[in-house]
Amino acid sequence: MATIAASRIAALNRLRCSIFQTSYNPQSIRTGAKYLRARLKGPSMINYYPPEVNMATFVKGFPDEGFVDLDEEQRLQDVIDKKKRGKGAPKKAKTPEESRRNKKRR
């Protein structure tokens, strides 16, 4: 039985890779192609868990029913209380002259 030269096998492998549009990797260097070809796990993980229903989405889904999200009401009340004490968020600048960044540069 005749043996085939290594150069002939390498040439055949190179030709096969060009025909089937695969990467030619004669030194067997790690390329990560196995992980790039793998199916993505995100969509199946999203489908595994049921959709989360909380009070906020329920209230938004039925605005005419008069449901109240107590957590949101408490958050809004806290914001109002902080503003009364002067601890609220600063006002946003409407023009470039009002911004703090311009005041620092001058």
Rank of each mutant, 00 (worst) to 15 (best):
L76V: 14
Q21N: 15
L70C: 09
Y35I: 03
Q21H: 13
A93E: 03
K41I: 13
R37F: 10
Q74G: 02
S23T: 03
K84R: 06
L36Q: 15
E98D: 15
P96Y: 11
P43C: 07
V68Y: 03
E97A: 08
G61Y: 00
I19A: 04
T3I: 02
K84F: 10
K60F: 02
G61C: 02
T3F: 08
K92Y: 06
A38L: 04
R30E: 07
P90S: 13
L36C: 10
A89H: 09
P26V: 02
A56K: 06
Y49V: 10
I80E: 10
T3W: 06
G88L: 01
R37M: 11
K94G: 15
Q77F: 08
N54F: 02
Y49K: 02
D78G: 15
A33Q: 14
P26C: 04
I19T: 06
G42I: 11
R100H: 11
V53I: 13
A93S: 08
D81F: 12
K41L: 13
D71W: 07
E97G: 09
L15T: 06
L40V: 01
Q77T: 02
K94P: 00
L15P: 02
A2H: 10
M55R: 12
V59T: 14
A93W: 00
K34I: 11
S7C: 05
S44V: 13
K92I: 00
T57F: 10
I4K: 01
V59G: 12
S44C: 04
C17R: 05
F62C: 09
Q21Y: 05
E72K: 10
A11L: 02
